[in-house]
Design a binder for these strands. Structure first.
Lengths: 140, 140
DNA sequence: TTCTTTGCAAACAGTTTGCATCGTC
DNA sequence: GACGATGCAAACTGTTTGCAAAGAA
């Protein structure tokens, strides 16, 4: 009834025909547990905490492979670093807290709709899009 | 009546207290004439065509200085490279044509308004934002 | 056994920086 | 003359790659 076990990144990777090595097992686990959108360095740090000796090049290669297979999504925010998140089934956009660097997801059907309208008015169809709101927490 | 002469990047730079060197004169000229959002390499190429011998480090430094003074705006699109545009007086967003790489500006007050709403609902105030629509021309 | 993945080090691309010199104000 | 800007080369950061060894399937 709840999210079934075989929809883990690990299982989806296996189904994509990727070989499951010890390193990948850990990387996938970390990736799945991440609530934020980690960059390669962060991932490598967390992976190393669990299993030392995993080379950062392996993390880079794994991220590229996973992205090619559509298992994760690549983001480039204003800070320049490339960040990742497990491929979302639903589309969403991002708040980026400028004070903490925290990344929060949100959805707005209204905005999605408006985007379609505007694109059409300009003679375009949307292939994909990216909306990032750089924000600050309102103190009360 | 029309846009007055002293609103050029050059004049605005002068007013910001920047020294106008030969190199900067050319860089500002190229920047002003650019309809697209050039990256440093592009700028350097165009600048070199007009006046050879300008070092690319100078272009980098000038871009940073101009950005600090709010005279140009820095963008990071999905391709990773940092790109620039003369600081727009009006805020606008971008279409990126996925086939040609062309960048087109647009505005939508409605979307701006919706963004404010959503941020407020989440307890945030917007510091800045970025909306990029990756699009394809509709053939007819 | 085959074909993929890994570690390591070297190579890259984009960008920044230290320093002596030069040029604008 | 003072101080900001430039050229050049070296340094740095993030990312990729060649190759031989290790390991999944």
């Amino acid at each position: 009834m709840t999210g079934s076990q075989d929809d883990t990144l690990l299982e989806r990777s296996r189904r994509s025909g990727l070989r499951i090595t010890g390193q990948r097992r850990v990387i996938l686990e970390v990736l799945e547990g991440a609530t934020d959108h980690p960059d390669v360095e962060e991932l490598h740090r967390k992976v190393s905490a669990i299993e030392p000796g995993v080379n950062i090049a392996t993390v880079y290669r794994t991220m590229n492979t996973l992205a090619e297979h559509g298992l994760i999504e690549r983001h480039t925010f204003e800070d320049g670093r490339t960040r990742f998140e497990p491929a979302p089934t639903d589309h969403h956009d991002h708040f980026i807290d400028v004070d903490t660097g925290e990344v929060i997801e949100f959805v707005s059907d209204e905005i999605e709709r408006l985007q379609e309208d505007i694109a059409r008015k300009h003679g375009f169809e949307i292939v994909s899009h990216k909306l990032e709101l750089y924000v600050r927490r309102i103190k009360d």
